[in-house]
């Protein structure tokens, strides 16, 4: 059975010195091209929402809200790929798995809180603002 573990260990002893070189080659994993691509995409994805809101381009605030949230989501993905060098391969896929797990927790936290508290708000007795101010 120990034979199964052997190949992993076999690479280590002389592999240690090489592992530095190997990582040097990897370096920051980015290239000038990839950083610039990410930067230009980010500038566009930042400029559009600011323009939409500051210029009052759309009459409907709900539509504007949905569009800028979608653009933010796209920009986060752009940053993940071009700046954080996210991929499904690094560390044998574990970074990506950790990211997916975190995303699930983030979605549960955000959607869950807002959903639950919104319904709680709906079912509470109405309190006019001037009364709310006097509450401790």
């Amino acid at each position: 059975m120990s034979q199964v573990v052997e190949p992993e260990l076999a690479g280590k002893p002389h592999g240690h010195g090489e592992s530095h070189g190997h990582h040097d080659a990897h370096g920051s994993q980015g290239t000038f091209r990839s950083y610039m691509t990410g930067f230009i995409l980010s500038v566009i994805l930042t400029a559009i929402p600011f323009w939409l809101v500051m210029g009052d381009v759309l009459d409907d605030t709900r539509t504007t809200g949905i569009i800028i949230m979608a653009l933010a989501a796209v920009q986060i993905v752009v940053h993940m790929i071009y700046f954080l060098h996210m991929n499904t391969k690094s560390e044998g896929g574990w970074t990506f798995l950790a990211l997916l797990f975190t995303l699930i927790l983030v979605v549960i936290t955000l959607v869950g809180s807002i959903w639950v508290m919104y319904h709680l708000d709906q079912n509470m007795m109405q309190m006019p603002p001037h009364e709310a101010v006097q509450k401790p």
Partner: peptide
């Protein structure tokens, strides 16, 4: 956003 890209340039110079 600019500081993100300049940090990227620092990493490229580091390489």
């Amino acid at each position: 956003l600019l500081s993100s890209i300049t940090y990227g340039f620092a990493m490229l110079e580091m390489d």
